[in-house]
Design a protein around this nucleic acid. Structure first.
Lengths: 218, 218
DNA sequence: TGATATTTTTAGATTAATCTAAATAAAATA
DNA sequence: TATTTTATTTAGATTAATCTAAAAATATCA
């Protein structure tokens, strides 16, 4: 396995190359890992030696497929632990990052797969970011807030960004629990509230405030 | 906080001094931590510097009260994670040690206290070893197997050393679930089976095989 | 008690990850 | 394009944790 530190570099490179196809620069990595450029250069040589990155002096780096695999695996662990912390231990979604940052380095495939099952194989973490499955596949659609959807769009409720019991009880009462399918039927201009069809049966209107806190997979 | 490595030394010293009141020797620590005596000496100087141990050259070490605190805290974390792995993720009790060895170094008091609550504040880990509470207090009675008890002794069922669902279902059927109070009424010499009173009501006989796998606090 | 064996410590090296300062390459600009 | 600025790499040190080999202290026992 790779060291703690190596894993953090791989993760940093992965996140920096998300979106843009360009190679990632030494300075970008230094900033993300809170180290100095010289330290990054050293580590890049080491990671290249291990064939985890493609590195050409002065030209920046990309991850090899082995490197991508390793990075995705760390991200999978991070996000599953976040779900655990929020869903099972009652943390707020904004309190879990630092702890997950430590837990993500625990090394046991069995552990993480069992955790995955225990949590019901969630598809997204509490921030709405997708969780890679055990083979490393990522459902690239990030969750969106209902308040960001357009008339006619449909999706499945897959997360919340507000975790108070008051809010969760309200969702239950409204029938908007995890897994529920919804279709936006109308956006009401007057107060920003949203009319939607729940499970192809019930029609309901929810406030913009509520809609902002429900996350949906399209 | 203390480093990973420092924590492992503290834990080793704690375990080595359990039972005997004597100071612990350099060689004992070297064996327990799978390092060489010379490395241990270096680390002992460092721990003494930090006032975690009392160290006199050539005389061995004892933990200071700060050191005991730190060690007990690590043990608390280790054992709570073991309970989690067995009770929630379905690991066998003999599969959890190595993973708990990693998890015990995760640093968050909130995390561990919430985990404690989530698990129902267990008093012992799956091996029957007591779990220190959040103030560091240890119920020093290690759990004993029913098969090791004597006639007339009483106790409370607090753990099992066999985690198959077949066995757990049997316990439920027998009324020997966690928290049940038992009194040994007779040891049957012929086949080693044991007659006991359950919750001061039912009288029942269980086989030696079953008795070996039920852990009790006296 | 004195010689021998064992344990512990010291001295000096090594490895991983980091740093600062100086050198070099690449990019920007005048 | 030549010069300046910025980014990256190299060189050389530092810190934590480890090691081996040698020296010193303690323990054993004849």
């Amino acid at each position: 396995m790779h060291s703690f530190t190596e894993e953090n570099y791989l993760k940093a490179i992965y996140h920096l190359s998300e979106g843009n196809t360009m190679a990632v620069s030494t300075n970008q990595i230094a900033e993300m890992t809170s180290t100095k450029a010289a330290s990054v250069t050293d580590m890049l040589k080491k990671l290249a030696e291990k064939k985890l990155i493609n590195y050409i002096k002065y030209q920046g780096v990309t991850l090899t497929s082995t490197g991508i695999n390793a990075a995705v695996n760390i991200i999978r662990k991070h996000r599953l632990w976040e779900v655990f912390l929020v869903e099972k231990l009652g943390f707020k979604w904004d309190e879990v990052h630092d702890i997950a940052e430590e837990l993500e380095h625990i090394n046991s495939e069995t552990l993480i797969n069992r955790l995955d099952d225990f949590l019901g194989n969630p598809v997204a973490d509490p921030h709405g970011d997708p969780i890679p499955d055990r083979s490393g596949l990522i459902n690239h659609k990030k969750l969106v807030k209902i308040s960001d959807m357009q008339t006619g769009e449909s999706g499945t409720v897959s997360g919340v960004s507000e975790h108070s019991s008051v809010f969760l009880k309200l969702l239950e009462k409204l029938g908007l629990t995890l897994g529920t399918k919804i279709i936006i039927s109308e956006l009401i201009e007057f107060d920003g509230s949203i009319m939607l069809t729940i499970d192809q049966k019930t029609e309901r209107t929810i406030s913009r405030e509520v809609a902002k806190n429900i996350l949906v997979i399209l």
